[in-house]
Design a protein around this nucleic acid. Structure first.
Lengths: 126, 126
DNA sequence: ACCACTCATAACCTCCTGGTTTTATAACCA
DNA sequence: TGGTTATAAAACCAGGAGGTTATGAGTGGT
């Protein structure tokens, strides 16, 4: 069992655009805090805080290189999160297709005019 | 471009265990607010708020069935989120394997023990 | 018409988040 | 030893999140 807290932390960490940008940048390789802070219009402590959040979620780990504390990515929690998402996403997509058809059929067979939902606007196309 | 706001809202919505549970329950089919609230040890308005968050993230939409407002899942934003995740996850996983091998090789070929920075795995992806 | 049911809104509280500036710590350099 | 660089920590603040209770509004049943 994954324990919801890891998922909580992971998704929460991913919910911030700055942090996603940091992750994106780290995808290109290790980087120091200063390097990571550079492209953003915010202070270094702010970035440090973001890194702390990412670290707490297990998404990044840090090394040591003299005064620098290079950050690198940790893929494991992403795997959990992706697994969770992909699992449900697929299931939902399936359910929807079925539901779509089902509702369509119901409306054909049930001309009482009862206002049942009008079978999702635009569904599973994609 | 997806616009970060949808991702923000999606991940933020997924960051709460109650909301994930709601989604999980909705995966089994539509449900009313009362039905959704039942298994939780919190008030109905709290659930309504959670639903609002999920709705704002586009993860659920609502119909109308008499006094009830049945909720159903919307798979689209999940697709975005999964895409984002899977994309990076794969890339990271790859980078890591490469980095792993790379470090291994470096240590074999460079027995001087000098603590060099572990040579980023050729960045410019994307 | 009235009541019961389902749900949303309002008002309120507390705690967390994301930012700030300022200061402290740690390692290198001279 | 002192100065510079890199990063963390502290103190503070505004706003939002997640919960509560109380109330209002739409709908159906009788």
């Amino acid at each position: 069992m994954v324990g919801t807290e890891l998922l909580d932390a992971t998704f929460a960490a991913l919910a911030d655009p700055t942090r996603r940008a940091i992750l994106a940048r780290l995808a290109a390789g290790e980087a120091t805090v200063t390097e990571l802070a550079a492209p953003f219009a915010m202070s270094q402590p702010a970035i440090s805080k973001h890194l702390k959040v990412l670290e707490r979620a297990g998404l990044v780990s840090r090394g040591r290189d003299a005064q620098r504390r290079p950050c690198r990515l940790e893929a494991r929690p992403l795997r959990e999160a992706t697994a969770w998402l992909a699992d449900y996403r697929d299931y939902w997509a399936e359910s929807y297709q079925r539901l779509d058809v089902l509702l369509d059929e119901l409306q054909s067979v049930d001309p009482t005019g009862t206002e049942r939902r009008p079978a999702r606007p635009n569904g599973t196309g994609g």
